[in-house]
Amino acid sequence: MLLRTLLTACAFVPSPGKFPATGDDTIAGGIFCLSLTDLATYLAKTGNNPGATGTESPKGSAAATSGSGPYPAQTFTDSTLPKHTIYAPKKPPTNVTMPVIAWGNGGCATDPTTHSNFLLEIASHGYVIAADGIAGGKTGASQSMVTDMRASIDWFTKGTGAAKYGNVNTSALATMGHSCGGLESMSTAYHDDRVKRIVMFNIGIFNDEKRYLLQEIKVPVAWFVGGPKDMGYPNVEKDYKLLPAGLPAYKASLDTGHGGTFAATNGGKAAKGAVNYLEWQFRNDETAKAKLLDPKAAGSLVSDNWTVQFKNWT
């Protein structure tokens, strides 16, 4: 048996064969992330530019909508899950069971506003999302932690707070996030069997010495990244290869740089990719699956200029 060490009050120090019991750490993003100081050092060393954009980056102002799905969505604050924002259909649907998502923001920010177009789009297809933070970031913290995303999971699975938004399906639960929030989603899912899928945007593990922790990931992982200009791109290339043998994985890249398309109307092409992935995974939608896996399918990601790679799926 590999040694599993519970780290509580101290920062996780990676060492091959050293597996903490949870993904918690003293830094935002958890055990798969790195500190802001280390990030600055990394960027100076590699020359990566988090502000780089690409041919698919959003241009102009986005229209404000309730999403393009069949269930117009909005944001809610909920006293049963403080310091979070809920994205859900305006009216609880009566004809659909809704998968649930715990979301982490870019920079592990405590304000999800910059991702609202994207999150409303997903919610409008019949999903309930609990995002770290509230509009304005008035949570008393500068960055979110694994404990914040775990609070979302607990809210979905242990209490009754989420039930007011409709018929939620806690057996179809994903952790998702952008940048630091993406690493938070993987750290939160680590050793938590309530999480069935991990979806990460524009990010991979920065530290080579932490990649051995990927051995402990037990559920399918999907990455949506922003092409070679994205500071997450080279690390995702490494992580994809190092997942446990036989574990399903999906990797799609679009020329946006690190910022993705979150700010576009209805979240742009990143939201389209995410919705189709979730519909395939949690609702067994064969049309959505084809868009992800078959370049010749109508509306495929490849036809939208994504470069796609996947393994252990047919």
Rank of each mutant, 00 (worst) to 15 (best):
A245F: 08
P244Q: 02
K229C: 01
L243H: 08
T261G: 01
S253M: 03
A252G: 07
G267P: 08
M231S: 10
N207K: 14
T256I: 01
E216F: 04
N235Y: 14
D255E: 07
K251P: 00
F262A: 13
H258T: 12
Y212T: 01
E216T: 03
P228E: 15
E237C: 11
D239F: 12
F262R: 04
D208S: 14
F224W: 10
P244I: 02
A264Q: 09
V219M: 15
Q215P: 02
K238T: 05
E209F: 12
M231L: 15
H258K: 11
Y240E: 11
I217N: 14
I217T: 15
L247Y: 04
K272M: 09
G227D: 13
E209Y: 13
G260V: 04
A249Q: 10
L214Q: 10
D208L: 13
T265Y: 04
G260K: 00
P244L: 02
W223M: 11
Y250H: 11
D255I: 00
V236R: 14
M231T: 10
G268P: 07
Y240H: 13
G259F: 05
D208G: 10
G257H: 06
M231E: 10
A270V: 04
P248E: 09
D239I: 05
E216M: 13
K218M: 00
V221M: 13
Q215L: 03
A271E: 10
E216D: 13
L242N: 14
G267K: 04
